[in-house]
Design a protein around this nucleic acid. Structure first.
Lengths: 158, 158
DNA sequence: CCTATATATTTCAAGCCTAAAATATCTGGG
DNA sequence: CCCAGATATTTTAGGCTTGAAATATATAGG
């Protein structure tokens, strides 16, 4: 789902260029994402959202609240509920009610979840290395810093 | 849905950097996409997928086949069917059976669809100008060229 | 103590998305 | 002409996604 700048009214110089940049960024991430999704499905019978959740839980060994997860992953609460439901059903994750605050529950990776994640993470990293292999190492740094600056700037304002 | 490089086995130098770049790219596009989605919903009661489809049809005034659309937008056939169904129900798009090949139908924007799209496209371009306004004009060019090169390279191999 | 408001989570309806199966039609050899 | 394989599209099952409503619990002010 991505096209290119169109012949519509233009308000400022550089607007068209920014639009072009945005479209290219979107297209690039979609191409890479599609490839990752397909490989995760084929080789691990998993999905990108599951991978992202497991990745967050892997770094927070002590567990996270549902709201921590949705905030960190930039997705809605309701969304996380469904993904965790399925991970629990697969035995990769546990939900533990807390003494003290009965509204919340702590979500943690099980040993099986850890094992499954480690295998996927290794493959994932090598896939990215392969898929972005065409980008020069120097450029990788540069691009990375630019995106980091953009995001810091964004988050500073929101 | 995005995290950061993790402490897992590393195969080559630069792998971690490429992983970091990927994560940042994903996070950036998601932040911008979420903002666009929200604004399209709020101001035009529409969605990004609908916008993308209308955008493709706007540039192809004579219409497109369903398969053209799904190829161009990088989404599955079945997906396009549903989106077009809803656009037809809203009177923004028509499906015309073709003499000669009864399997295919040509999808076109109606005058109402054109009008609605032009309004959205103008707003969309200004939103992008605003959201990516923090990126220096020189950098915009540079980044855009890099992504273009990446994609050409990718498509050359696939 | 009680209640209004805030917080954490789940549920819900609707739309998006994919891969695979089902339909329908077309085309080229026999 | 016939039919096997190719092509175009829709349907289906299952998962992802959101925003809003529903539940449940917590907390602070009166």
């Amino acid at each position: 789902m991505v096209s290119a700048p169109l012949a519509v009214a233009d308000a400022g110089p550089g607007d068209k260029e920014r639009l072009r940049l945005w479209i290219r960024m979107l297209r690039t991430t979609r191409i890479v994402e599609a490839e990752l999704r397909e490989r995760l499905k084929r080789e691990f019978d998993s999905t990108l959202p599951r991978f992202d959740v497991m990745s967050a839980l892997y770094r927070e060994r002590e567990g996270m609240l549902m709201s921590d997860l949705s905030r960190f992953l930039l997705v809605s609460n309701g969304n996380v509920t469904g993904i965790i439901d399925r991970l629990v059903a697969d035995g990769y994750v546990t939900r533990t009610k807390r003494e003290g605050d009965k509204r919340t529950s702590v979500v943690r990776l099980t040993p099986a979840g850890m094992g499954a994640f480690k295998k996927m993470a290794a493959a994932h990293e090598s896939w990215i290395a392969e898929l972005l292999g065409g980008v020069d190492t120097f450029e990788v740094h540069r691009l990375s810093e630019m995106l980091h600056a953009f995001r810091s700037n964004w988050e500073g304002e929101h």
